[in-house]
């Protein structure tokens, strides 16, 4: 199936969901690591209930950028952001923002599946319990719903109390997505979610994302152009810290405006 999908890149048409309203607007955002100017003057919209892919060669700043959208870069002492990321009228980058609350609305899934070494159900219930939900039935219902959303329910329903670290890599990653869904966020950020997985698991995750975009706004970093072409409605091409080009996936892949975009897409570098 994956191979088939890859062959379809050039004929890929995904225009049904374009021109959704803008949920997050990035305005002239700069990110520094100490003196290193890692992301330069980025302006781009993120459209509601669609998939936006960030592509580009390693070190182009795409991961740095996505980690700024829910302020995960706060963990790095030398990181510093300037500019504005507008979300429901507030600037995400403002020091006044309650990052803990922000992250319940803008969730994140990482490259390496990182389930907690606890049981499968505890993995999903941990954020719920922190949010003050202690009703056992609610917890069970949400667990079941989230696991069904990611297509993991049938595989794990008989061993919910077993450790999540016993799952396969692909299952772990779907559990991490289910965990991020538990709090019903608006936006899900995924930082190369399939790069540590085998092709079959990757394809499952891609299908899942296409399902999820009906209800969620999805931003995904990927080094895999075919993946962006397969699932994204919008694609942003980053190169050397700059946003070279942003557009609908169809336009970007079929009629790129900049030469470096077409060079990258055609595999001439990166």
């Amino acid at each position: 199936m994956v191979v088939q999908m890859e062959n379809k890149i050039t004929s890929f048409v995904n225009s049904e969901d374009v021109d959704r309203p803008v949920l997050i607007n990035v305005e002239d955002t700069n990110i520094y690591y100490g003196d290193n100017h890692a992301v330069k003057h980025v302006n781009m919209p993120i459209h509601e209930r669609s998939i936006t892919a960030l592509i580009g060669p390693s070190g182009c700043g795409k991961s740095t950028f996505i980690r700024t959208i829910n302020r995960m870069n706060d963990l790095i002492p030398s990181a510093r952001c300037e500019g504005k990321i507008d979300y429901h009228g507030i600037n995400i980058l403002s020091p006044k923002v309650d990052v803990v609350k922000l992250r319940t609305e803008i969730g994140m899934v990482f490259q390496q599946p990182n389930p907690f070494p606890k049981s499968i159900s505890e993995n999903i219930q941990l954020p719920l319990k922190f949010a003050g939900i202690h009703n056992k039935k609610t917890l069970r219902d949400v667990t079941e719903k989230c696991l069904k959303q990611v297509g993991l329910w049938e595989e794990v329903k008989d061993r919910l109390d077993r450790s999540a670290t016993g799952l396969s890599g692909g299952q772990q990653q779907r559990l991490c997505i289910a965990r991020a869904l538990a709090l019903k966020p608006d936006v899900i950020l995924l930082d190369e979610p399939t790069s540590a997985l085998d092709p079959v698991s990757s394809a499952k995750i891609e299908e899942l994302l296409l399902q999820l975009k009906k209800d969620y706004t999805i931003v995904i970093v990927t080094h895999n152009m075919q993946q962006a072409a397969r699932i994204a409605d919008y694609t942003a091409f980053f190169y050397q810290g700059e946003l070279v080009e942003f557009g609908t996936t169809k336009t970007l892949f079929t009629m790129p405006e900049k030469k470096s975009t077409s060079d990258y897409i055609c595999g001439r570098f990166g």
Binding site: T104, F110, Q112, K118, F130, L183
Partner: peptide
Amino acid sequence: LPLHQKEGGLALGLTHWHTIKTILLPE
């Protein structure tokens, strides 16, 4: 401990202390 465990907790909207208490300390 691997950094991604801490990131996982924080990305779920847990506070730093709650991440330490429920995820990092048991590990």
